[in-house]
Design a protein around this nucleic acid. Structure first.
Lengths: 228, 228
DNA sequence: CGATCAATTGATAGAGGTCAAGACGCGTGG
DNA sequence: CCACGCGTCTTGACCTCTATCAATTGATCG
């Protein structure tokens, strides 16, 4: 990505050793001082945020190749507790060293900004979904695409999280997840065995998701003046 | 913010002239090539995203002092169309020049990263809300706090957007907004005249919002191992 | 082989969406 | 200055979707 060998050496130096974890192991706790950014190398993690009233909400799941902790830069402390869902490997970057280095390496700075911007987009992705089916279809499709982007199969995946976790994340009841998954199977869109999912009709899955970020449409939103 | 006078001069140079706009005027269109970041100086803007099926969704409202366009860094094009809701003033920064400069000014780089990180947090804020009342109370409280942080009154505000816009943004029906606002007035939390809102009981408003990012709780989320 | 936890299935009730009608403001023009 | 028309907002009646409660099945593990 436009970084020469010498720079790459410096970058490697600030990456600490890989860290092997197992189900339930914690990466960082909500409220802890922000220091490091983490990259998932294998497995899966979930991020859980506890609100003022003690309710837990799963803010996201993290797949191999994805970064965790970028949202902690601003408040300078982690806003959630991140936990391994299965046996996983992650590596860590010291943030202070990373920014120092990025001041010297323009390509690194660009990449860092892009990664942050990407997370803003991801965070906004699921606001559109209306019905429970759209949410769930969108969730599965999103997982699928993220795996696919990392070189995994684009037609099947293993849910490392429980139905309850999915329900919590999407803001619905676990029973509804169960019913809808069955319904998607009946429709011939998915084939489900326990936590293993095979996608039979990816086009229909995307269609059921309802929307999913249609890009580059130069349409005029309501109440906007056409600039002439 | 730790930038000396000489640097400040360079920064000022890349800010183009202020731009006055009126209701319905467009800042940028969805799909247009990303080039500039915008800062709202007065008034209010809304960002509208059109999905693949032509449905419009209002992704956010932008108040004085806030930046618009940071989410476009990664995809290199704007992901929404941003429109003035009322007479407004904004200024613009060329992104390429901004990043060049930030490589020279560490404090600017830090600030830029913080701003992006902040947006990730903002985007995640509203996932927790369950009921329509929580969503609406959270929305009003959020607006209030954002105004307050910029030196505006912390007890009253003017909604520049229609009930329909609020409904669209929160993913509910305009009728429900109307009913709930009335209900909040009956409860003695708000006093509403047209689009002017006076907050009578801010504590209760926050309480009704249900959650709102409780910070720094070292609680153990379910299914996590206690590191001893 | 029980014990435990996850997942499914069924019955019920309530929150909120939808449809339809009416009220209120506000600008325009006679 | 008032009447009209249009858009925004409100109010009411109804009905669907999904949460909730409860019970059962299925899988995993000591």
């Amino acid at each position: 990505m436009g970084i020469d060998r010498d720079d790459l050496k410096k970058l490697e130096d600030l990456i600490r050793n890989d860290h092997v974890q197992h189900e339930g192991d914690i990466v960082f706790r909500q409220g802890a001082a922000f220091e490091k950014i983490y990259a998932v190398k294998s497995g899966m993690y979930k991020s859980v945020k506890v609100d003022a009233e003690g309710h837990e909400h799963i803010t996201g799941f993290h797949l191999p190749g994805e970064l965790v902790g970028l949202d902690a830069i601003y408040p300078k402390k982690y806003g959630n507790t991140t936990v391994a869902l299965t046996s996983s490997v992650l590596c860590q970057f010291n943030y202070a060293q990373l920014t120092d280095l990025s001041a010297q390496i323009p390509a690194l700075q660009q990449q860092l900004l892009r990664l942050l911007s990407k997370d803003i987009n991801n965070a906004n992705l699921f606001f559109t979904e209306q019905t429970a089916e759209q949410k769930l279809a969108g969730f599965v499709h999103n997982l699928l695409k993220r795996y696919e982007a990392r070189g995994y199969s684009g037609s099947e995946l293993i849910l490392q999280m429980s139905r309850q976790d999915i329900a919590n994340h999407l803001g619905m009841a676990a029973e509804t997840i169960s019913r809808l998954l069955k319904q998607l199977q009946t429709k011939g869109v998915l084939q489900i065995v326990r936590r293993e999912i095979k996608i039979l009709d990816q086009v229909e899955l995307l269609h059921l998701a309802g929307c999913k970020a249609g890009d580059e449409q130069p349409i005029n939103p309501l109440n906007s003046n056409v600039s002439t």
